[in-house]
């Protein structure tokens, strides 16, 4: 059972000035898990994801990837980052590179593949997200949904052990949201381990094995979607789910 654990997060704390954004977060992720983080803005969900690959350095606490400590590790953080894919709310594609070159560049510079290998791998990933035709377009020529799928391909090309999604559809309209979620659902079903910050409850209900509700830098409660949504233990969780329901219609039933 234990060797199935890919990621362990232990008592993470993070302060910005006087405000404590994360106050003691701990959880474990098993291979193939999809965990969805929900909670109102400012509760530290994005900060938490960024702590996992150390884009934000936590004040205290430990993070382990496959039993190797990511925080204060002897190994270069860049070694771990290759194994932790990340997808951002604003895509953050490299604007001066075509779609295929966006996927290629880290393969060439970080993984040290030669150009031909990198091109093959990049095309493979673009095909996987359904963007073979768009390979030679620049980010500014792509729709938001296409851009986000390129950024997913870019992360996947590194063959990560785990993928972090930081509100991947928040900048997209409903139609485009659908095409991105479809790619993510596929990934999840094919066994990718994923941590997703999102308020797309339809997605959460259909693929997550755990929903984690965060409040004021802490995990208030967590559980499988069916349980957490039908019978939340805390009034606060219920309120929040109600608000989501008002916005998006009844969820998960």
């Amino acid at each position: 059972m234990k060797d199935n654990i890919i990621l362990r997060v232990e008592d993470i704390h993070k302060k910005y000035g006087k405000t404590e954004v994360l106050s003691g977060i701990s959880f474990e992720v098993r291979k193939g898990d999809t965990k969805v983080f929900i909670g109102s803005s400012g509760t530290g969900k994005s900060t938490l994801l960024r702590c996992i690959n150390q884009l934000t350095v936590p004040d205290s606490g430990k993070i382990w990837l496959h039993g190797e400590e990511v925080t204060h590790s002897q190994k270069s953080i860049n070694y771990f980052r290759q194994r932790i894919g990340m997808v951002f709310q604003n895509f953050n594609l490299f604007d001066h590179l075509t779609a295929v070159k966006n996927v290629e560049i880290a393969l060439i510079k970080v993984k040290k593949l030669n150009k031909k290998q990198a091109r093959e791998k990049a095309m493979e990933e673009l095909v996987r997200v359904g963007l073979k035709e768009q390979a030679d377009l620049y980010p500014a020529e792509l729709s938001g949904g296409q851009a986000q799928r390129v950024s997913i391909a870019r992360a996947l090309a590194m063959e990560p052990d785990i993928m972090l999604f930081d509100e991947p559809t928040s900048a997209l309209d409903p139609e485009l949201t659908g095409e991105v979620l479809a790619v993510m659902k596929d990934l999840s079903r094919n066994g990718m381990t994923m941590l997703v910050v999102t308020h797309e409850m339809g997605f959460a209900c259909s693929v997550a094995n755990e929903i984690i509700f965060m409040e004021k830098g802490k995990i208030l409660e967590s559980g499988p979607p069916s349980k957490l949504i039908r019978e939340p233990r805390f009034e606060r969780t219920k309120q929040f789910l109600c608000k989501l329901g008002e916005l998006y219609g009844d969820i998960g039933r």
Binding site: L55, Q82, N92, D95, A155, M158
Partner: peptide, 16 residues
């Protein structure tokens, strides 16, 4: 900061 973050998240060094 997004471009830098994305680059670092892929495992590039600061200089890369």
């Amino acid at each position: 900061s997004g471009q830098m973050m994305a680059a670092r998240s892929l495992g590039m060094t600061n200089i890369q």
